[in-house]
């Protein structure tokens, strides 16, 4: 159990979210109401499940709030989210975003720059099953992700980790791509 103050705020957050869901979002964003009549037959409509879900969250978050208010005051523990968390997410998010951008665009970009031109020019979709184009995005993006995160956590850059990252990416190609024609590595399914 977290500290009393955090639990109270958590309960309030869920209660508000649930109230809005059950009484505003679910009824307004569903075609049929919780109960509706059609050709003299009464049926359960699409709004019922989200309203029940919202009602359930509301009920239990209010009960949780009530129990927490009755709980003895305690010393606040260390905050769940601090500057380190923020810094971690910014750095982690940066590496992840860079990896995904590389994974998505490196192949098409490489094809545009170094691929056949003139009459032989082809789109990435046409070349997504051909070597080396189909691996460029996955290898670059995957390597950046694995090596970047490993180095980030270790706090230093090591050649050994670069080798293990490359081997990991090649291993995944061997598992997912080489034996199967039906499986597409990222980002080839998007083109």
């Amino acid at each position: 159990m977290l500290s009393r103050r955090i639990e109270i705020w958590l309960a309030i957050f869920f209660a508000v979210l649930a109230g809005l869901t059950a009484f505003v979002w679910a009824p307004l964003d569903s075609e049929t109401a919780a109960i509706y009549e059609f050709r003299r037959q009464i049926s359960i409509g699409d709004a019922m499940l989200p309203m029940v879900a919202g009602g359930g969250i509301l009920l239990f978050s209010v009960a949780h709030l009530f129990l927490q208010l009755r709980r003895r005051r305690d010393a606040d523990e260390d905050p769940l989210f601090d500057r380190t968390t923020l810094f971690f997410f910014v750095t982690f998010g940066g590496v992840l975003a860079l990896s995904l951008i590389l994974m998505f665009w490196a192949g098409p970009l490489a094809l545009a720059l170094f691929g056949p031109s003139g009459d032989d020019a082809a789109t990435y979709r046409q070349m997504r099953s051909s070597l080396p184009w189909k691996y460029i995005g996955f290898v670059l993006g995957g390597f950046t992700l694995v090596f970047g995160l490993t180095s980030l956590i270790e706090g230093r850059v090591r050649w050994l980790r670069a080798v293990s990252s490359i081997l990991a990416v090649l291993g995944l190609i061997l598992i997912f791509d080489v034996p199967f024609d039906t499986i597409l590595l990222p980002p080839n399914g998007d083109f």
Partner: peptide
């Protein structure tokens, strides 16, 4: 980090969409 890449690749293999 390898587990992360493996999981994302497995998800992509199933849905074939970013």
């Amino acid at each position: 980090p390898m587990v992360l890449l493996l999981t994302l690749t497995a998800i992509y293999a199933q849905e074939t969409s970013f």
